[in-house]
Each structure stands twice: as C-alpha cells, then as structure tokens.
Design a protein around this nucleic acid. Structure first.
Lengths: 236, 236
DNA sequence: GCCACGAATATTGTCAACAATAGTGGTTCC
DNA sequence: GGAACCACTATTGTTGACAATATTCGTGGC
C-alpha cells in the first residue's frame, strides 16, 4: 500500500538540489556524529531522564569514544537545546517545563503560520494532490482509531509544510524547536478525544493551503496551535 | 535625566572598541568563552570576510589558545549560524545571501510580531511610559538627522520589546537570527530616506503596544518588516 | 597537450594526559 | 552541638601529540 508519505519521501530524495538536508538518520561518517546521534536518541527516548547529569567520562566509556568526542557531541546537543551546560559544572539533560513547552508552541505557531502561508503561495498541482491524499489518510487513521499512525502522519504534515514552504531558515528554527518539545508532544498524541478535534484542524490547514489561501492557512495553523496549547495546559 | 537607552549605550560602547583589542590577555570566564567572543566580534566587524576559511591552527596561534579551545569556539559559532562547518573540510565564515537575509527577516517578522503582542498584553504603566519616551527620542533623532543614534535606538527597541514580552524562547530565536543578519541590517541603517519612513512605523508599533492592542502591535510589526524587506530587495 | 595516478602537504578528527575548579566530608575550635 | 576550615575527590577545562582525511601539485603515460 503506497501511502502519501512514502511517495513524497521519494520526491524529497529526488529533489537533491534542495539545501534543507536535515534528515540524516545514519551517515555516521565521523565518530562525533555517531555519538551525537546516540546520545540524542537516548535523551529523546527518555533513557536519560530530565535533569540527569551527563558525565563526560561516563558517556565516553559507554559509547567507546574519547572524552573529547563526547564533549563535542554535548556541545552540539546543547546548541540544539536538548542539553544544558553549566560552566565548570558539567552537562545535564535539559528539563523543559510546561511553561517552556507552551512558549515553544507559541513560537512554532508564528513560524509554522509563515511556512503554511508560503507553502500556499508556491504550491504545485502535484503537491496539492499529495496534500489532499495526506488529509484523507489522516482522517482515515483517526476514524480507525490508529493513533500511532495518526501521530506519524501528524509529524509528517509538519515536515511536509516546511518543505513546501521552501523556507530554509524557518525550517531550521522549527526543527530545533520541534526536537526540544518531542516529549511534551508525545503526551498529547495518545489521547483519542484530542485526535478527533485535532484532525479537523489539520484538515482545515491542508484545505487552506490547497486552496492557495495563504492568510487562511496561517490562521488555520494559529487556531490549531492555540488548541494544542490549551490542551497542554489542561493536562497540567 | 537618564535616557531610556542608558544601558544600551553602555553596551554599545563596549561593542565599539577598536580593532587593536585583540591581544587582550584575559577578559572573563573560561578561555573558550573569551575566544568565542573574539572570533565572533571579528566576524561581525567584517575582519573575517564571508566565505573566508577559518583554520583552527591559525586562529589558535592568533588568539593564543589551544586548538581544542578554538575548535569548541567554532562549534559554538556554528550553532549561532555565523560559521559554517563542513565535515573533514574545516570551517568558514558563513556568507548570508540576500535571499537568506530576507528569509531571516520573514521569520523575525513572525516572531517579533508574537513578542510585540505579548508585550502589549503584559505591559506595566511604568514600561509604557518608558516606551513613549523611547518613541519621542527616536523621532527626535531622525528629525535631527542623527542616523547613528537612530540606529542604536532601533536596535534597543527590538531588544526592549523582547524583554517586555517575557518570552525566553522567542528572545532566544530572535537573538540568534539578529546576529546573523547584522551586516545586511547595517546596509539599510545609513539611508536617510529610509529612516523617515521607518520611524513612523516604529512609532506605530510603540503606540499599539502602549495601547495594549496586541493584534495591532503584531500587525504594525508585520508592516514594518515587510517595508524593510522590500527596501532590502530594492537595494539589490 | 591532456588525463590519470600518486606522493607530498595541509588541515581536521581523535586520543590520553595534565591542570584547574566545584563539590564532599571530616576535623577542630568555639 | 554547631560552624569554619582544610584536605580529598570527582569532574570539567586545556594542552600537545598522533591518526585520518582532503587537497594540491608534480610526474608519467597516452
């Protein structure tokens, strides 16, 4: 069953001239990149708890790399906002409070609104068709109660809108913010009642983009994000 | 009477040191932070040209720090977007094209709009008075043709709105973007005709914030930024 | 004359050891 | 019994040396 996701992934790789090469799952050429990915995964997966200290020597022996390599990896992760570095006092997993998560969502609201508007402006007919299919898949997934699939499509929609906007700077900012709030996002995605509301908003976003209505797309994104924010607030 | 920008003047003079302060033995904190600041200043000041290669050993002897220290400094600067690092092929000063500069302004438009709205929501009476004074100072500076002063007040307004928004995440994103586009921003600030238009827009922003009109503030920021973008386009 | 090939060089990536700093616990003095 | 002081430990910051990789330039074959 070829899904819209697989298809547009293919078109994404075919579009090799694009500068936004932010999806680098493997390609562990240097040891530094390898260790960075391993630690990042461990943090995102929750293997390292928030506020847990990350001792360089410890990680060094765990991952079989030198301490300098681990150190640069921690630097990189600190720049991504996943790790907190206190001078002379080491690194720890950055804990993202509810307030911070909301702030992140607010900034995402603004920037994703921009991306959606841009995407609406420069949408090709082929891409419009892909978005329509994606909308139908999302609707179907929720109707079948497949929340895992829906969550995946959800993330993919975000990514796709960024790609379609052709806005490298915005994509960069969003990627960074998204990585930080992955854990909080996760808490919401597994709530069936939430999905039923959210899927309508996502459909509205897609419809606005497909209709080349840039202002409407930005507003639809704004509505959706405000909804996510209030849902996150209620959870606390 | 202390002006509204007393503090920014102080930081301004600190930034405005001449080019011969590069051999300062030790300024503050760790060597890494010191070297990072020195290289950053050199880049922002234009001492290192865009696309110029930054050889670690070279910088190491120039700044009297070990290569590892320089290396971490370059990592940090890469995360700030001022330096570009190619694996196994070294670092160079990141060249920001006109298109990129426009992208940065677009994202700033979105995020500063958010900040302005937030600032309008939570503005205290004392802060409102400060903003009004700032507006008058900007108007006066332009009327007197003091573009340097106006440019500084300009930057200060940006900073102040961020502060008043109380939005750490947005401030962080904006600070990063601002650092990148400093050179392009500079090209515009020295044009008298531009200042006359721009000061009215800034006044509109301040008025909206002072009036606690969050939507109006966001729109005013949007208008201003669109104007800056088209001015930058015309320059090319 | 031009392209492939390979050595020489320049530069970054990685490592283990050393120095400096913050945290810890015990000891002594009041 | 409590607080200041001091040595001790754990951990990060820094350094120089070594290994790996990319670039350059000369050389030979066609």
């Amino acid at each position: 069953m070829p899904t819209a996701v697989q298809e547009s992934q293919a078109s994404g790789t075919a579009d090799a001239t694009d500068a936004t090469d932010m999806t680098v799952p493997d390609a562990a050429g240097t040891a530094e990149a390898r260790v960075t990915d391993l630690i990042r995964d461990a943090i995102v997966r929750g293997e390292y708890a928030p506020n847990q200290r990350l001792i360089e020597a410890d990680l060094s022996s765990t991952f079989g790399a030198s301490r300098a390599t681990v150190r640069t990896a921690l630097l990189e992760l600190a720049s991504e906002g996943l790790v907190e570095r206190l001078p002379n006092r080491g690194s720890r997993v950055r804990a993202i409070s509810l307030d911070e998560a909301i702030e992140i969502l607010e900034v995402r609201m603004a920037v994703e609104g921009l991306c959606a508007a841009k995407a609406a402006d420069k949408l090709s007919d082929a891409d419009a068709e892909g978005l329509r299919r994606l909308r139908d898949e999302m609707t179907a997934a929720v109707a079948e109660g497949d929340l895992v699939e829906y969550s995946r499509l959800n993330q993919y929609l975000d990514l796709r809108v960024r790609e379609l906007s052709g806005h490298a700077t915005a994509s960069d900012v969003l990627a960074r913010l998204h990585a930080q709030s992955v854990r909080h996002q996760f808490k919401l995605s597994s709530r069936p009642a939430r999905a039923k509301v959210s899927v309508l908003q996502h459909a509205a976003i897609i419809d606005a983009i497909v209709a080349r209505d840039s202002d409407g797309a930005a507003l639809a994104v704004r509505d959706h994000m405000l909804s996510v924010i209030s849902a996150l607030r209620e959870l606390a």
